[in-house]
């Protein structure tokens, strides 16, 4: 195994084991969640990417994760790293072309509508997708989401956040992923318009934050404009790249989780298109 990258928000310390998934092992200390992940998951502000890492194949609980100024110690494995191994999670935008950007947003919308998981929030972009949800819990869930988004679009942003937070399927519920996308979108709008949306973002985060540490971690990073690798690639593709690259980046985003990537993408898209009542 070799270390591929370490997120720029990873701080020195000892992190006890928290949980394990198929491509990730999570460690938690003082509400900071660090994930050791395979290349399949990729870069993130709080990710340590290890080549040939197998998250869930181990049967024993791993020893705590130890991080110093230039080493990561994971059980019997020791990885050294330098400044060059850091993954820089902020996106600096320059020389963007509005027409290209808006064209690429339409491409992203198309990808979400045609290629995202049937149970993603892309039904907010294409009403016909609601037929993918079974009657009962799933349809009640889509009603709740619609209610929350309607509130947001009509000037009641925080009410909408309250309606969406913790709502839906998945370890990070769909509503939380949507809000994370909104926060990322706000950060992008801030840079594009030169307006200060940080207070709104902070309010959204405080309202959305609840007991789910995964969601909280994700939301906090989004609030601060710190992006995981696939999202950063998508934002840069939207600003500068061809339609083909946007489609590929969108596909990589939508491959995250059951529908998490697509849910985040939907929240991001609606925000950046100015539909979330943020002027």
């Amino acid at each position: 195994m070799t270390l591929v990258s370490i997120g720029d928000q990873v701080k020195e310390g000892t992190y006890p084991f928290h949980s394990r998934f198929r491509h990730a092992v999570n460690f938690l200390c003082d509400k900071q969640l660090i994930s050791v992940v395979s290349e399949e998951i990729g870069d993130g502000p709080l990710n340590i990417v290890i080549r040939d890492f197998e998250g869930q194949s181990a049967t024993h609980e791993p020893a705590p994760l130890m991080i110093t100024a230039n080493t990561v110690v994971l059980g019997s494995n020791r990885f050294e790293f330098t400044d060059q191994d850091y993954y820089r999670s902020a996106v600096a935008l320059d020389n963007w072309e509005p027409r290209l950007f808006h064209h690429n947003l339409a491409v992203l919308a198309e990808e979400l509508q045609t290629a995202s998981s049937p149970k993603s929030l892309a039904f907010l972009l294409d009403e016909q997708r609601t037929t993918n949800f079974r009657p009962g819990f799933e349809r009640a869930f889509t009603d709740q989401i619609r209610r929350g988004v309607y509130q947001m679009m009509n000037g009641h942003l925080l009410d909408g956040v309250r309606t969406l937070r913790g709502c839906g399927l998945g370890l990070t519920p769909s509503g939380d992923d949507f809000i994370a996308g909104l926060l990322i979108g706000l950060n992008l709008l801030q840079q594009l318009r030169g307006q200060d949306y940080q207070r709104i973002a902070n309010d959204v985060f405080r309202t959305a934050r609840a007991g789910n540490i995964f969601s909280n971690s994700f939301l906090d990073l989004a609030r601060r404009g710190l992006l995981f690798g696939r999202m950063k690639d998508l934002v840069l593709a939207l600003m500068h790249e061809s339609e083909e690259t946007v489609r590929k980046s969108a596909a990589r985003l939508m491959a995250i989780g059951g529908s998490s990537g697509a849910d985040l993408g939907t929240g991001f898209l609606l925000t950046v298109r100015g539909q979330m009542g943020v002027s």
Partner: peptide
């Protein structure tokens, strides 16, 4: 992880005699 939860939710719903099912985090919204 999310993929596991969604898959298990679908499998439970397909069991004989099950009308509806959900496997979700215990948030207030859910």
């Amino acid at each position: 992880d999310s993929v596991t939860l969604m898959r298990v939710g679908t499998e439970i719903t397909a069991l004989p005699g099950v009308i509806d099912a959900a496997v979700v985090m215990g948030t207030k919204s859910n």
